[in-house]
Every structure is written in structure tokens, then in C-alpha cells.
Write a protein that binds this DNA or RNA. Structure first.
Length: 109
DNA sequence: CATATGACGCCGG
DNA sequence: ACCGGCGCCATAT
């Protein structure tokens, strides 16, 4: 359909797919990497379409390390389970050692 | 074409 | 340091 629907969304997917295992990143970090630091919201919005993609949206959280998007996953704590399954400690929707598992595309990529 | 929504982020009090 | 409100950009309707 939309021939140009792969403008921002696709970019986000490309970066999100590159998130290493056991690591997480923030919407703003991805947005900034894409040159749209002010479009952090769009990153999350794009995640809505990532449902059909191979994008590990569970590895993307807000700048506080909070699983704000866990509500969009199946169940109630699937996102947390996925992260914990990767070795990421999560407590009360809050990632522990966030700075340790944080993966900045602008620096790492 | 205009309006409303949103998985955020930053500034101010 | 904590809480609240405003702003921004892109997509969907």
C-alpha cells in the first residue's frame, strides 16, 4: 500500500533489530541516532507496527529504563519476562542496572 | 487538508 | 530530588 511507509518506521526497525541480546535502549536514543531526537514518540509509535516485524520491541524502553510499553505486549508482564529471560533484571517495570545494559546506537553503532 | 493520538523527553516549579 | 505540564514529529482517521 503506502509505497513510502518505510520512512521513519523502517529506520526504527533497522536499529531495533540491531539491539544486542541482553541489552536495551531508549526511544530517544534511537530517535537521536536517526537524526530526530525530537521524535522519540515516533519511535514508540513505530513499535506498534513492529508487531509483524522481527523487532525486539521488548528491548526498547523509555529513558528512565521503565517498561512503559509493556502494556502493549500480550498479557501483563510478557515484556518483563522476555527481558529477564535475556538476563536483564527488571523490578516493578523498572530495569535494574539500566546504565549497564543500556545500548546506545550512537555510540555502539 | 485538518484534527486527534501517542510504547517520550525536557524544562520549570 | 520529586512531580507536573508543555512541546515535537510522524502516522492514522
Amino acid at each position: 500500500m503506502q509505497t513510502k511507509a518505510l520512512s521513519f518506521f523502517d529506520k526504527v526497525y533497522q536499529v531495533a533489530k540491531q539491539i544486542p541480546y541482553g541489552r536495551v535502549t531508549s526511544y530517544g536514543a534511537i530517535a537521536k541516532y536517526l537524526g530526530a531526537a525530537r521524535s522519540a514518540r515516533m519511535v514508540g509509535y513505530a513499535m506498534n507496527g513492529s508487531h509483524n516485524k522481527d523487532v525486539p520491541a521488548h528491548r526498547v524502553v523509555n529513558r528512565k529504563g521503565l517498561l512503559t510499553g509493556k502494556h502493549h505486549f500480550e498479557g501483563t508482564n510478557l515484556m518483563q519476562q522476555l527481558l529477564e529471560s535475556e538476563g536483564v533484571q527488571v523490578t516493578d517495570n523498572q530495569i535494574q542496572n539500566f546504565e549497564e545494559v543500556f545500548w546506545d546506537p550512537s555510540k555502539e553503532l
